[in-house]
Structures are given as structure tokens and as C-alpha cells.
Simulated assay, not measured.
Amino acid sequence: MNNTAAIAAGVLAALTAAAQAGPVAPQAGKEKCYGVALAGKNDCAAGPGTSCAGTSKANYQGDAWKYVDAGACVSIKTPKDGFAHAAKGLIVMRPTAGIGFKPIHFEEAVACPAAGLWFEVHAENYMVAGGPRIAMLEALRAERPLSLHGVGLSLAGAEKINPEHLARLRDLVERVEPLLVSEHLAWSRVGETCLPDLLPAPRSNEALQCLARNIDQTQEALRRRILIENPSHYMPLPDHDWDEPAFLRELVRRTGCGLLVDVNNVWVSANNLGYSPRRYIDALPARDIEEIHIAGHRPDAVHGGALLIDSHDAPVAEPVWRLLGALLSRVGEVPVLLERDGDVPPFSNLLAERDRAAAYLADRGEFAHAC
């Protein structure tokens, strides 16, 4: 058994032990509810106990929150117009479709005039104090909205979040003030061992408690709502207590987090495990979906189309475009992000795919029948 397999074999027991370490969920029958400044008015002061705390599931007013009776929190969507950062001279616009940023495209990205264009980066690539990389990111942020997409918090792990990693992420969030912050429903760390992959977690009650604890810790440190992305699956795992949409719904209820729905992940997983991708997206809570990812995939070299790989190294497949249209018909104008991490083409090619996503956003009603 190799090291990764040995670690994975022990994580289920660790999840159970960690869940028994103490209470990690809100009081029974309660949910976390945040404050919100309505209609652009500064009627919410940051900090627990403010007069408007407990009015929204979306956290965009600092740490003004309290627990309320489950179902009593008003659902107010996170603003789609970015944040008004006039003091820093940061751009505020209505984001539509964006592109995963690559440094080789910096000059074209900064100069691109496309309306509603925004960019997303992997947070861990920029968690540094200074230097050319962070200077490039700040220059890009001065022109376009940014989203930070984390890959290293290991939220679904049995252990609490590494405090140093979380502190560096908080510093980056404060520095670039992103439109959105997201992470994965996955784990990648045990003790001092960090694994170079996003590994699946059992959807057990114990894992749910650990995950909720880690999301709460992250949101309280960042003083904002984060989004959780659905994973890709390549084989069935045993011992689930929840199906995935129900698990995500409960996670939102317990923590007040939002969802990032990766449509390619849904398509790949449904193909590999044999379920309906349309039923999956229809079971997700539409009001809590605040970002959508699209990407390319490829068939496995041995098993062919029976096993699809979420490779991010090809154009978006037509079935994924159709599934995007079906999702947009439910959720409305949610920002869509095109990912491309391998075999990266010229910026113009990515922009053409991004423009197609923007057209889907503009005409989303036409795609309600897509799947």
C-alpha cells in the first residue's frame, strides 16, 4: 500500500474521532444569519450584536451575525455588482462570465475591453508578502473584479485548518478584496503531510460536522461568506449518510456558506457513477448558488468514455454547455467562470469560449429545455 492509500485508509476513523472532540454545529434548530446593508445604505456596523444582524444568509457586512431559528433567515443574494472600493480606486462592475487567469495572458487580460469580464486565481499561488507575482495580481485587480479559488484549506479533512495557511489567505483577501472566495468539498492534508490532489470525503454525519466546523472557522477568520465547490468523482465510495445535493444543502443551512457549482464536475461524476446530471442540479438550492464553473474533460486512456477525467485541458464539451443552460434557467444571472489549466491556448481562444458563456447568461431563458 502506498503512502497516499495508507493515509486515505485512516481518514474515515480520524473523521469520527474529530467529530467527537466537541460541538461543532449550531444549536439544534438554529442557523447562522448575517447582517446586510440594504439598498447601498450604511445601516449595518460590523460586529456581532449590531441592530441589523440576522437579516441575510449572505455575509457581506463583516462579522455581523447571530444564530436564528432555522428557516427564519431572510434570503438576500450576495450583490453581483462587486464592492464599492472607491478609496482604493478598485474597479466596480457587474460581472458576467470570467476566465481563470494565467500570467502568460497578463497584458491581454488587462487590456481586454469585454463587458463584465472578471478573473479568478488559485489563492495559494499569490499568498506571498510581495514581489512581481502579487504586483501583477494587484494591477489586474485595479482593472477587473477578482475571485479567489482556494485549493489548500483541506476543509473536508478530520483536522482543524492550518492557522498559518488561513492567516495568509486572510491577508490576501484583505489585500485584493475579491468579489468571491471559494474552496472545495475535499481534503488534502493529514498532519504535516500535504497531498497534491483534492481527495473525496465520505458524506457521513461525522464528516459533515468536521466540514461545518472548518467552514465556520474560515468564514469567521475571513469575515465573509465562502463558496463550496462540488467535487469530481471517479468511483463510488461506501458509507455515505447523505446524497451529495442533500449534503450540500445541509452544509449551507448549518454554516451560511454558499455554493460554487462546477457543471463539468457534475457531468463527469454523473457519467462515471451513473446518475442523472439534470436531477443533480435540480436538487441544489438555487438561491445559494453564487458562482458556476465550466471546463473541459477527456476520456480515460484505458477505459475511454466510461471514465471521464476532469482535466481542464480541452474546450468545454457540448453536453456541459447544455447543462449550463439548464442550471442558468433555475438560478438566473450568476457569474460563470471558464477554467483552463492544461494545454492552455491563446487568450483569444479563451475569450471566445468566455463570450459564449456570457451569451448563455444573457439568453438563459432559451436553454430551459436543454437537458
Rank of each mutant, 00 (worst) to 15 (best):
A8R: 11
G10T: 14
A18L: 08
A25C: 07
A28V: 14
A37D: 05
K41I: 08
A45W: 06
A45H: 13
G47F: 03
P48A: 04
P48T: 01
S51N: 06
S56C: 13
K66N: 11
Y67V: 05
D69V: 10
A70H: 00
T78I: 02
K80A: 15
D81T: 10
G89T: 11
R94F: 07
R94Y: 10
P95C: 10
P95H: 04
P113M: 04
A115Y: 06
G116F: 02
W118M: 11
E120C: 05
H122T: 10
H122D: 03
V128T: 14
G130D: 12
G130W: 02
G131I: 07
A135M: 03
R141I: 05
R141M: 01
P145T: 13
G150T: 09
G150W: 01
L155A: 04
A158T: 01
I161F: 02
N162E: 15
V176M: 01
P178R: 00
L179E: 03
L180G: 00
V181Y: 14
H184V: 03
A186G: 07
R189V: 09
E192G: 09
L198N: 02
E220V: 10
Y234N: 03
P236N: 05
D239C: 13
E244K: 09
L248S: 02
R254E: 07
S269G: 03
N272E: 11
Y275T: 04
S276R: 08
P277C: 06
A283L: 13
P285C: 13
R287T: 11
I294Y: 02
P299M: 08
D300F: 08
A301K: 13
G305D: 03
D310W: 06
D313E: 11
A317V: 04
P319C: 01
P319M: 00
R322N: 06
L323M: 11
V334C: 09
E339M: 05
V344N: 03
V344K: 07
V344W: 01
F347W: 15
F347V: 11
S348A: 15
N349G: 12
L350E: 04
L351S: 05
R354G: 12
A358K: 06
L361M: 09
D363S: 12
R364D: 00
H369L: 03
